[in-house]
Design a protein around this nucleic acid. Structure first.
Lengths: 95, 95
DNA sequence: ACTTTTGTTTCTGTCAATAGAAACATTACT
DNA sequence: AGTAATGTTTCTATTGACAGAAACAAAAGT
């Protein structure tokens, strides 16, 4: 079986806390922060911050942001859906 | 909120297929294969292959394997639990 | 149409993960 | 105890993600 599918399968049965622990186990500190940054970039892109704005606020280069933008261009992207859901939750609370 | 926790939270609501798609979106080809290899290493360690055996079969260096071994030494490791579960499933089928 | 802002690509250099190889440590077997 | 097998660490070199900076492209505002 494809390893990533196997991992996905396993993860899908876990709680949020367990997934968090799993990621901390299998990824390095650096990879965790890389991933965090990618997530932040996606969120800020979704909030329509300009790329240069994001670059300076997160201290990342533009090439990284363009990559994030490419992900979000796919209207069926899972990431896009997740981020929008998070955004909606947030708006519910603060509205 | 901590980004990784947010990601974990989001992932925990997804199906295995969606998680798989999400990982393909947010990780590079290379990172996917890195992750796959780490997973294979953990599985083979759990099956008590020798480290040198794993190294030659997966074409990875020993330092990478030692790292995997360290993860599994923690008896509460989530990865360990997941791998054991996969192992058990497999045994059920082939027994 | 011109200018400004924003998005995207490209170039060189840097850094972390890790390959490859060897050394050292520990355990198992006799 | 001595030897072989296995686990772990350490060294140098390599590689991919990405920073920093600049160039180019597209869109928006005037």
């Amino acid at each position: 079986m494809n390893e990533i599918k196997e991992i996905s399968n396993s993860i899908s049965k876990l709680s949020a806390e367990e997934i968090n622990a799993f990621l901390a186990e299998i990824l390095t500190e650096n990879e965790i922060s890389t991933l965090s940054n990618r997530w932040r970039i996606l969120k800020m892109l979704n909030q329509n911050f300009s790329q240069r704005d994001i670059a300076s606020k997160l201290n990342v280069s533009l090439c990284k942001i363009t990559r994030g933008a490419k992900i979000l261009k796919n209207k069926n992207a899972i990431s896009l859906r997740l981020i929008k859901e998070i955004e909606n939750e947030y708006n519910k609370i603060t509205r």
